[in-house]
Design a protein around this nucleic acid. Structure first.
Lengths: 112, 112
DNA sequence: TCGAGCTACCTTGACATTCTAGGTACAGCA
DNA sequence: TGCTGTACCTAGAATGTCAAGGTAGCTCGA
């Protein structure tokens, strides 16, 4: 008896790349990063907060991003993230890896 | 102190698609599926046996593939997998999902 | 003034998947 | 005889994502 299929976790391993690339356009706070990615992809990519904040924490721990507390225009406390030099290198590496990977998948998937 | 980065798990969620697509070319046994994917991608994709066999078992349980014991040309016992009708539908669905997803990522990643 | 709704952050626990590292068995060959 | 390659399998650990909760403060309308 076939079990139902859960939604497939394609985002796995790509979230870091997306966040790094978003921060490459300039510093942003967490919530804004998620909103920007969703907007830029017409909601094709939805970033859950339960994935985002652990990811940001992880990347900070690895030295790819820096965090600084600040205030939004309306006075809310926000945590602003920016790319470090190591983060920039990581972005290049993950970018290359991503295109390498998709090219390989295309060799299998992209044919009759 | 920055921690080292482990290799990122890009394959996550894509293995099923790769296996389904491989089986769409005709029945194959597990080991041969892995070899074929590695060959077709010039070793860009490496399929570990510890990932492959659980994945095959999973997909069989979900009714996407059928398994049958057989013998290789040199008399080794092999387990030959083939796509079911449900598997063919799943392949179409995952294919569509994959191109949808990569297109969305490209919107973020693929620009200056 | 009270509450609803939004921004913004965070955490816990469950879950799925992959990988490492083992294991078995047998065939062919040196 | 022992090595290499084919072929299958599994246990345990690690990783990452998600659902679902929570906090706090601001704005705006009733």
């Amino acid at each position: 008896m076939p079990n139902p299929a859960p939604r497939s976790p394609l985002l796995q391993g790509t979230l870091d790349l997306l966040v790094l690339k978003t921060l490459a356009r300039g510093p942003r706070h967490g919530y804004a990063i998620a909103r920007w990615i969703e907007d830029a992809t017409d909601d094709a990519l939805r970033i859950e907060e339960g994935s985002l904040y652990p990811a940001l924490y992880r990347m900070e721990r690895r030295g790819w991003i820096d965090a600084a507390w600040g205030k939004s225009e309306i006075g809310q406390r926000i945590k602003v993230y920016s790319l470090t030099t190591a983060g920039r290198a990581q972005l290049r590496a993950e970018s290359a890896q991503w295109s390498h990977f998709t090219a390989a998948v295309a060799k299998i998937v992209g044919q009759p």
